[in-house]
């Protein structure tokens, strides 16, 4: 319909073309405006930690496509190890000061203690650990905190700058299986960087 209009005139006068675009986008933003607003407001909330099955809408709006608790191969209770036994985070995640990775303890490290802890020997998860060690297989943990490939994050620099583990990972000490509490979005990173007067230049993390 429109195309049969005086095309020549239309193209000679760009302001009219402009209007066509405008109406097109008005319709578009009308349809999705609500969604966009919901998106914005949801960013304000801090997601609550609850034991629940995978929630589709929550996953969308919290930018967290994973259920809060991943089906880990072994249900590792952080709270037992930290609160009950008083272990420091760095006791197991010992690369955190030296490398970009914090490091997950090796199977041999787990065995180092657990072969002498006779009280829990019979628990099914500990039996699983023994099985992995005997088979010579690493435990296939699932990643709880996963950054995209275009982000260069180093644990080493954050720890050396005095950032505490719980500031990003939450109160892991009281969790049984570790779960994500922060959105790990760029907005969230930048907020902290601004508060601490750290560099906010793009190339600090993206190269």
């Amino acid at each position: 319909m429109l195309s049969k209009l005086k095309k020549k005139e239309m193209y000679s006068n760009p302001s009219k073309l402009w209007k066509r675009f405008f109406f097109f986008f008005l319709v578009f933003s009308g349809i999705f405006g609500v969604v966009a607003l919901a998106q914005q407001s949801s960013n304000q909330k801090v997601p609550q930690v609850k034991e629940k099955e995978f929630d589709f809408w929550k996953a969308v709006f919290y930018k967290n496509p994973f259920p809060e608790k991943l089906p880990q191969p072994i249900k590792f209770p952080h709270n037992t190890h930290v609160q009950k036994l008083g272990l420091d985070c760095k006791f197991c995640h010992y690369y955190v000061e030296k490398s970009k990775y914090a490091g997950v303890p090796s199977v041999a490290d787990c065995m180092g203690c657990h072969r002498y802890v006779s009280t829990v020997m019979e628990k099914p998860d500990i039996k699983k650990l023994f099985q992995y060690y005997e088979k010579g297989e690493p435990i296939p943990w699932l990643k709880v905190h996963n950054l995209p490939d275009f982000v260069r994050f180093t644990h080493r620099m954050h720890i050396n700058a005095g950032v505490e583990c719980y500031e990003c990972h939450g109160d892991v000490a009281s969790m049984d299986t570790a779960q994500r509490v922060a959105p790990l979005s760029m907005d969230w990173c930048l907020n902290c960087h601004r508060q601490r007067n750290a560099s906010t230049e793009c190339y600090t993390c993206h190269y």
Binding site: V60, P65, V107, P140, L142, K143
Partner: peptide
């Protein structure tokens, strides 16, 4: 999100 991505694996050393 409808196709839920598989979580990545995090394999530690054995020793």
């Amino acid at each position: 999100c409808v196709k839920k991505p598989e979580p990545e694996k995090l394999l530690p050393y054995l020793n």
